[in-house]
Write a protein that binds this DNA or RNA. Structure first.
Length: 509
RNA sequence: GGCGCGUUGGUCAAGGGGUUAAGACGCCUCCCUUUCACGGAGGAAUCACGGGUUCGAUUCCCGUACGUGCUACCA
């Protein structure tokens, strides 16, 4: 078996792309790259009622930001197109009809109302969700219960119908999942899923099998929520193309939110994103924040996602995409779902900020600053500042709070920390300090510190207290790198200016 | 309700018949720093429960509980 490896990500364009989706893409991508295969994206837009404008474009933007470029897709092209299922609509019907002819599927004419009433009649505490299955199908209006000429007549009249799979009675359906190993189902307990809808579109079940076959997919990765319908897919493979052609399945463990299933709400509720990038719902106007906008580096996002359900067995936690490609293996993917922990996610980002060169960070930081009305920044100066503060940022957005005072005189001074210690002597220290500064020809942190301390000793004052006050004068609060470092960076003129400002401000009390 | 899948500290997790049950995040203490971080050194905290199998089970088997997914002409 030397078929070239081909994997796919098959999203439906209905909204934001969340964590679990991106991780599925990532594992697909890593697997393809690891084994020299092809990674393709197929858009599953068979449900016309759920189509969302802009969602497909958004998905590709997210992949782009993550650095997960498909080899084939509706926008990247490829020899197995079209890559949108809506554009493949005419291809599915013949397979559905073939199944009917072979006795594996049947026409069903039940209207939505009739289905509804069947369910209502059968519904009970013991059976809260009655199925269209081996037990009920003979009570319904379909080509199994109606005489052939009646069926032919209805079809001829153009009566609406769907094609349903006829699940066999007493079969055990087994397959080997790359993650869960042997999985088995009793066919009699699975319902007769609709394969072809009344509008002529296939459902996911038919489309995924037909397209995986036509696109020569060898390994199919998807979320574990699909495991329950896998028997339908296995059966379709058996009936249509042969089990030997079926891709190897890998059902990925779910990513859970703080209280169970990860939902869009969790993001809003717990203050962390669930989508890769900002998603705006055009109907409600609601904006859901993405990891990118929250201040994540794509490298960190990829890294943390990779570690949610996989590790290489060593203590290493920080991986670049290249390292992941080299080390990823499907048999080290977990069976159990993982609860997403935003604190750990922040840590990954912090580590990536630390290990990313200031010059790479510069354009991103520039953006953050300009969003906060700090513009016209000198590039060399910016690099210097980034170098000073990047170890204290865990999100890119932290660069503003950690560095704004390098670019503008602080508007707010933490006077509460100064006033109790403030007196005439200290005031005269800072007044004299300005004069001392004017004597310094090279305004470096060493020289600043030296004259600062010399003056303190001369006036018989404690250096520590003064240093704290000086920090508040320059920064506004008790934070940031060394005070003399800051002073050197902003320069003599600005340092003096901030001392004067502060002096005035402290006088006001 | 039925069916599927799962269960090592609060979270991510290594390990897997005999171990002091790794490591990371978070939390706490201390050091560094008269700031806040970074960094360093420590600390508290785990094998869901009950039966087997075995000389010995966290590890294998069976139950139970719990969690989660599916149970749509949605994916």
């Amino acid at each position: 078996m030397n078929k070239p490896i081909r994997v796919r990500f098959a999203p439906s364009p209905t909204g934001g792309l969340h964590l679990g989706g991106v991780r599925t893409v990532l594992y697909n991508y890593l697997f393809a790259r690891r084994y020299g295969g092809r990674f393709l994206v197929r858009i599953e837009d068979t449900d016309q009622t759920r189509f969302v404008e802009g969602a497909e474009e958004y998905i590709f933007k997210c992949l782009d930001w993550c650095g997960l470029t498909p080899d084939e897709s509706p926008v990247h092209g490829g020899a197995f197109g079209p890559y949108r299922q809506s554009e493949r609509k005419p291809m599915y019907r013949k397979y559905a009809e073939q199944l009917v002819n072979d006795g594996h599927a049947y026409y069903a004419f039940d209207t939505p109302e009739q289905l509804e009433s069947m369910r209502n009649e059968l519904k009970s505490a013991q059976n809260p969700s009655p199925q269209y299955d081996g037990k009920t199908r003979m009570k319904m209006r379909n080509s199994l219960t109606m005489p052939a000429d009646e069926v032919a007549r209805l079809l001829e009249m153009g009566t609406g119908y769907v094609i349903r799979i006829k699940m066999p009675d007493n079969e055990t359906i087994r397959f080997t999942d790359m993650i869960h190993e042997e999985v088995s189902f009793d066919s009699g307990l699975v319902d007769d899923k609709v394969l072809l809808k009344a509008d002529g579109m296939p459902t996911y079940h038919l489309a995924v099998v037909v397209d995986d076959y036509l696109m020569e997919i060898t390994h199919a990765f998807r979320g574990e929520e699909w495991l329950s319908s896998a028997p339908v897919h296995v059966l379709l493979w058996k009936y249509l193309f042969g089990l030997d052609k079926m891709p190897q399945w890998a059902h990925l463990p779910l990513i859970l939110g703080p209280s169970g299933k990860l939902s869009k709400r969790d993001g809003a509720k717990y203050g962390f994103p669930v989508f890769a990038m900002n998603w705006k719902d055009n109907k409600t106007g609601e904006l859901t924040e993405g990891f990118k906008e929250k201040g994540f580096l794509p490298e960190a996002f990829i890294n943390l996602l990779a570690m949610l359900g996989w590790n290489d067995g060593t203590e290493q936690e920080l991986f670049s995409m290249q390292e992941l490609i080299e080390k990823f293996s499907i048999d080290r993917v977990h069976k159990a779902g993982a609860k997403f922990d935003f604190e750990k996610a922040r840590w990954f980002n912090q580590e990536w900020i630390k290990r990313t060169d200031a010059s790479m960070l510069a354009p991103l930081v520039k953006n953050i600053l300009s969003e906060n009305e700090i513009a016209d920044i000198d590039d060399r100066y910016l690099l210097q500042v980034i170098g000073l503060v990047k170890d204290r940022c865990s999100l890119l957005t932290d660069f503003y709070t950690q560095s704004f005072y390098f670019f503008q005189t602080p508007a707010f001074l933490d006077k509460a920390s100064v006033i109790p210690k403030w007196d005439a002597l200290k005031k005269s220290f800072f007044t004299s300090l300005k004069d001392e500064f004017s004597l310094i020809s090279h305004f470096t942190m060493i020289n600043i510190e030296e004259s600062f301390k010399k003056l303190a000793v001369t006036m018989n004052l404690k250096v520590g207290d003064l240093q704290m006050i000086y920090r508040i004068m320059l920064v506004g609060s008790k934070m940031g790198p060394g005070v003399f470092q800051i002073s050197e960076t902003i320069g003599k003129e600005e340092s003096v200016k901030r001392i004067e400002n502060a002096l005035l401000s402290f006088e006001e009390g």
